[in-house]
Design a protein around this nucleic acid. Structure first.
Lengths: 215, 215
DNA sequence: CCGGATTGTTGACGGTGTAAACATATACGC
DNA sequence: GCGTATATGTTTACACCGTCAACAATCCGG
């Protein structure tokens, strides 16, 4: 009775089913816990309940896994920024001011994401053996929900709402992007880590306003 | 004849003489080649011509060496910024404009350092096991030639030269610091790595002007 | 001159990334 | 339906890494 053969799913099947995805999920966990340097192929395999080198059937090397996790994190950040673009704005603002507030809003959302998820955030800037083999390509042409794409969208809307001179639109993402990333680094690893959250966000707000008003 | 005993310095003496320093130097090399993750205690020992674990007499663990190298890099960056504050400025500028140009100058110098020394630059933001044990302290109270201190000096000079409202002096380093760090990251690992150096520096210049004029 | 403190060495352990050889399940052509 | 190629997972092995403990050489203060 209870033949081993026909017993349904006694122990995990030989084939995992979706190892690649499970490995990325494990990698995401590890990144959350300790950033990019905490990400290990063997540990990921362990967490996926699979032999130490099974990951090599899905990722050429550690860097490949890192990249995959990085992409996943970018998607999460993109979602956070997208959510920020949908948040309610105080009423009684004209279109121009609303567009401006949207921009400041995603800036805040970016830094908030970094503060709330330091490990995952740092994953975004993980390296791939510096002498960069094939850095370009990237293919991410859709960029539909890429953080950078969303920033571009919001800037475009500012132009439409006459909150930004069309002539200054080109390259406008640069100072914004640089600022939010710089702020995040400063708060995460720099001189402002000790500050109470309250003051941190105040500092972020004023820096954002400064740059946005300068655009 | 030629007694082994008295033969002068046939082979390196048992005691290295200045291992700690040599290890930091080796670490600096390795950081130059491949950033923080390329830094290994054993390899540093090897380059210093010493046994694999000798480093432990001078550094508690790998992180300690990383920190030491980080300090060394900060000093180099500080020197670069200091040099920028001494560079000649075009004549015919009033004090206020000169002070402003100084600020832009160290901003450029910061990004230039990052571009010229990506590995060493990234070392500055190397982590020490995120759950940070004793992050504060830092003691670096002198800050004489610390990059952050130099930035503060230049901002103070702007106040003196009436290029910056004293009321806005507090926290003025934040957007500047965030910007130059963000720009560096963007150029090193972000969407602008492919750009010709020429356009990169142009982009840096305009972002700096935008922020400085907004201070 | 001697004995303790510094500094460096040796050997060992568990962890990592990676490659090669092997095993098993799945999928596809006949 | 069968049989085999292919995809996926396992085992074994190697070199490297960080770290610890035990040992050896040198230096320095009494």
């Amino acid at each position: 009775m209870a033949k081993t053969v026909s017993a349904p799913r006694r122990q995990p099947p030989y084939h995992h089913g979706n190892l690649a995805q499970a490995l990325v999920a494990a990698g995401l966990e590890m990144a959350t816990e300790g950033g990019p340097e905490a990400l290990s192929l063997r540990e990921a395999a362990r967490r996926a309940g699979v032999s130490p080198t099974a990951a090599y059937r899905h990722f050429e090397d550690r860097d490949a896994l890192v990249m995959a996790v990085k992409v996943a994190v970018l998607a999460q950040l993109g979602a956070a920024l997208r959510a920020a673009t949908r948040s309610r704005l105080p009423s009684g603002l004209d279109d121009s001011e609303r567009a401006r507030q949207r921009l400041i809003g995603i800036g805040r959302a970016y830094v908030d994401f970094a503060i709330a998820n330091p490990g995952r955030y740092r994953m975004i800037f993980a390296e791939a053996t510096f002498p960069s083999d094939r850095l370009q390509g990237e293919d991410g042409k859709d960029a539909g929900e890429s953080p950078y794409g969303i920033l571009g969208e919001v800037l475009d809307q500012m132009v439409v709402a006459s909150a930004l001179d069309p002539e200054r639109r080109t390259g406008a993402e640069i100072p914004m992007w640089a600022l939010v990333h710089g702020l995040s680094s400063l708060i995460l690893e720099g001189p402002y880590q000790q500050l109470p959250r309250r003051e941190q966000t105040a500092l972020v707000q004023s820096a954002l306003e400064l740059v946005v008003s300068g655009l």
